[in-house]
């Protein structure tokens, strides 16, 4: 298991679940397609190191490091 904060740019990972969090934030991520089994790719980091730029289900999404840490991930072997 790993967290978003451990990902490197260009790396892909599979979402395996959510850590305990405020329901509103989770609901939004779920609606955006960050469901279990979905793949995310870290495609960039903002100039000051935060937030992150992720690719999910064909579109780009920006999340803050600390907030996105609620995603439980599994690294994908390339």
């Amino acid at each position: 298991m790993m967290e978003v904060t451990e990902m490197k740019v260009g790396q892909r990972a599979e979402i395996t679940g959510y850590m305990e969090t405020e329901a509103g934030y989770r609901a939004k991520l779920l609606a955006l397609g960050l469901t279990r089994g979905a793949m995310i790719e870290l495609i960039g980091v903002a100039p000051m190191g935060d937030p992150l730029r992720l690719k999910v289900r064909g579109f780009e999404l920006s999340l803050r490091r600390s907030e996105a840490a609620i995603l439980k991930l599994k690294a994908v072997e390339e």
Binding site: K28, F59, L61
Partner: peptide, 10 residues
Amino acid sequence: GDPAPFILEL
């Protein structure tokens, strides 16, 4: 109160 979390579609 908590600030709104940042979820931004590009």
